[in-house]
Nucleic acid binder design. Structure first.
Length: 755
DNA sequence: CTTCCTGGTGTT
DNA sequence: AACACCAGGAAG
């Protein structure tokens, strides 16, 4: 059984290491990977069965995630379709690969509504280009497909998580492509390269959703006197962010809002909280409404339902399988004194309070938002750092059982039901209804609760997941929607439509210099950096400290070097870091294309400007943002410029970097880096003015709002006594680009303090 | 890594 | 007003 391996990309059988002729190999009918029959433990019996032969990997899919495969009924059709593609002599290999991908990702992309504007069409064309590029550049070296849940080895090769795990599961601890050793840590805890995931997915899907807000009830809390970031009151200055107060709430959902936070609730950027959105900490997550409680894992009301949960490793009974997980209720612990958390359980959990709230959501079939925190160390699906929004799940059933610590715990089966794919997959489409996984512990469960009525949130063949019955009305309804807010939302939504390539390039940022990576390295902890940035951030790269004393060499001492983004020791990786070639190729192709498009756009805009420059001037005099033109200039400039500037910079730099790469190491690179930063700062300054005016106008709008109650209570006067919570690097705000306005680095309250 | 310990915020 | 809560620095 073990030991069955396919041929590698060069056609060399991974078992016998010979290179059989192509005709000698048989392709798997599903994944089309070639295999060397003499090396198979169970080769196909007859000639006839070769045509429909499935490789060991496809025939025995890894257990675990349910429903990942296409619907059973469609399968035979799928296989036939793939074979038809393979048999088509009129297609090049690339075209075939492309077709296979389309099939496997759930059918050809439907290009609906061709009546969209020119912009949209260009967008679509760009995407398919990018998808082509991806298909060319990125292949899991085992299955030869676009990597699914990609992981990157220290030697710079990319694999599907599953292929990788299958490979290492067979006791192979060397790279399937280059035979370099794979470190044990990566074998036991492979990390998904999320930058790659997002890139692949952005290329596949168009984020330009057509959802037109049909007058949602906008909830607005009076909190504009709060700073943008979490802060601490005079009294709370002692300890860390634990005692911070929340900054502004940016979204306009009521605190008891169920389901996704869509763009119409986001007057700031008009994006809403998209799946995969990550924040530094729980406070920031709270500010975007994904999960309001700062400490608690469950947001909800026992008589009403639970809106969201956090998976952050607080309860050892939790079990995370990505698309579904088993969640543990809260309570059962002694929290007397000022303990926030106490891992020790000393009594049984019951279905009351927040546990009951979850049960209500289960019974009603409400969507529950899920955030995962980096603190959940046991899950492969947890983010590397911060807190990430992973979409909505439904609680299919709940029960009680005796937990690991011997007391009863409440248990919930969460199953994903989001229209957007999860952050760890490069799927194009979101979830489809999937069969419930087998839960062995159910045998010993008590108080088993299942939903009787039809779920309020359910799947519709046409529209995907949606409210089948109306969502529960908010009990904290506050304001009548102000037309100004709606206008603001609309404007923000327009601006959020970045071009695919811009988004992609943003994903391929070096986490140190924040520019698009050149010579990208992927650490075993799945962080991406420019080679020079990473190497340059360590002054001495020798593996060990050679301690010499009196001419004698003492025992060498290993040096620990932490990844700049996480506490992992990457000193082994630094000994022989290999550039992720595939990623580099892709970045370079993207940059080339981006230049082309920029040129295109400039030409077009030049024409447009010329056409209607007369009309615009009168608009601008008004000062208020009336026309799209002025609007566009004001708000999109900072992001646009930032990106364009970044690119041109990187291009210059990468040229320089390439030439330099022959010569000596980090010195030059560092100076280049500094240049980059300098340039960026000056850029920020240059546009500071326009930014500020945008800000003021936005706030002026907010101030006109009516409110009944707010989050600011208890006579708190943050302006007078807050200190902002520490931020690591100032330019972090700048670098997140469009997400956070650059002006945000200086909050309004801070400004007033300065004055 | 573990332990200590602060005093936010929503719910009861 | 009391209570509960899957934080998060800092120190050991």
């Amino acid at each position: 059984m073990a030991g069955d391996l396919p041929c590698d990309p060069d056609g060399v059988c991974m078992v016998c290491k010979t290179k059989p002729l192509l005709e000698e190999c048989i392709p798997c009918s599903t994944c089309v990977t070639p295999w060397h029959p003499p090396c198979l433990s169970r080769p196909p019996e007859s000639l006839a069965s070769i045509a429909s032969w499935e490789c060991p990997d496809c025939a025995a899919p890894a257990s675990g995630t349910p429903g990942k495969a296409p619907a059973a009924g469609a399968e035979s059709g799928l296989v036939a379709a793939i074979r038809a593609i393979e048999a088509d002599a009129g297609m090049t290999e690339r075209q075939k690969a492309r077709k296979r991908q389309e099939l496997l990702s759930g059918g050809a992309p439907e290009l609906s509504g061709d009546d969209e504007g020119d912009d949209m069409k260009r967008g679509k064309r760009a995407e398919t280009d990018v998808l082509d590029l991806l298909g060319e550049k990125f292949k899991c070296s085992i299955c030869m497909q676009l990597p699914e849940r990609p992981v990157t080895t220290p030697c710079g090769h990319n694999f599907c998580l599953k292929c990788f795990q299958r490979w290492t599961g067979q006791g192979k601890y060397t790279c399937a492509k280059c035979r370099s050793r794979i470190p044990q840590a990566m074998v036991s805890h492979p990390r998904i390269n999320s930058a790659l995931v997002i890139a692949i997915r952005t290329a596949k899907t168009s984020k330009m959703s057509a959802s037109d807000p049909q007058a949602p009830v906008l909830h607005y809390v009076r909190n504009e006197d709060k700073p943008d970031e979490a802060y601490r009151t005079e009294r709370a200055k002692k300890a860390g962010k634990a005692n911070a107060c929340s900054g502004q709430i940016f979204v306009t959902i009521p605190p008891d809002h169920f389901g996704p936070i869509t763009r119409e609730y986001d007057p700031k950027y008009g994006e809403g909280v998209y799946v995969g959105r990550t924040w530094d900490d729980r406070m920031e997550c709270r500010q975007w409404g994904a999960h309001f409680p700062h400490v608690a894992g469950i947001a909800g009301q026992s008589d009403y339902g639970a809106q969201s949960v956090a998976l952050s490793g607080g309860y050892e009974d939790d079990e995370d399988h990505g698309e579904w997980f088993l969640y543990t209720g809260s309570g059962g612990r002694d929290l007397s004194g000022n303990k926030r958390t106490n891992k020790e359980q000393s009594f049984d959990q019951k279905f009351e309070k927040l546990n009951q709230a979850l049960r209500v959501s289960c019974l009603k079939g409400y969507p529950v938002r899920v955030v995962r925190s980096h603190k959940e160390k046991r899950s492969s699906y947890a983010p590397e750092k911060g807190v990430r929004y992973d979409g909505v799940y439904r609680i299919e059933m709940c029960w009680r059982k005796v937990g690991i610590q011997g007391y009863k715990v409440c248990r919930y089966l969460f199953v994903r039901c989001d229209n957007d794919p999860a952050p760890w997959t490069s799927d194009t489409y979101g979830d489809r209804p999937r069969p419930l996984p087998k839960i062995p512990e159910l045998k010993k469960a008590t108080d088993v609760t299942k939903r009787e009525e039809s779920p309020a949130w359910d799947y519709d063949e046409q529209d995907g997941w949606k409210w089948i019955r109306p969502p529960p009305p908010s009990r904290k309804m506050l304001v009548s929607p102000d037309p100004a807010v709606r206008k603001q939302v609309k404007r923000a939504m327009k601006h959020s439509q970045n071009s695919v390539r811009e988004m992609l390039l943003k994903e391929f940022c070096c986490l140190i210099c924040k520019n698009v990576m050149k010579l990208p390295l992927t650490t075993p902890c799945a962080h991406n950096f420019c080679k020079f940035c990473l190497l340059g951030s360590f002054d001495d790269l020798s593996a060990v400290k050679e301690r010499t004393r009196g001419g004698r060499t003492l025992r060498a001492q290993k040096i620990v070097r932490k990844c700049p983004c996480c506490p992992n020791d990457i000193s082994d990786f630094l000994q022989n870091p290999q550039v992720n070639r595939e990623m580099m190729d892709l970045i370079e192709s993207l940059q080339r294309k981006d230049e082309e498009e920029c040129a295109d756009r400039l030409r077009e805009e030049g024409n447009e400007e010329a056409e209607k420059s007369g009309a615009e001037e009168s608009d601008n005099n008004d000062g208020k943002l009336s026309g799209e033109g002025s609007d566009h200039v004001e708000k999109s400039n900072p992001t646009d410029e930032g990106i364009i500037d970044m690119d041109s910079l990187t291009n210059k730099e990468s040229n320089a970097g390439m030439k330099m790469s022959n010569g000596e190491d980090g010195m030059e690179d560092k100076s280049a880096d500094q240049n980059g930063n300098l340039a960026e700062n000056s850029n920020a300054n240059t546009f500071g003015d326009s930014n500020e005016s945008t800000f003021e106008s936005v706030e002026a709008v907010s101030d006109t709002l009516v409110y009944k109650e707010g989050f600011v209570g208890k006579n708190r006067t943050p302006e007078k006594d807050f200190t902002p919570c520490k931020r690591k690097i100032d330019d972090e705000t700048v670098l997140t680009g469009g997400k956070k306005a650059k002006a945000a680095s200086l909050t309004r309250s801070q400004k007033s303090l300065v004055e």
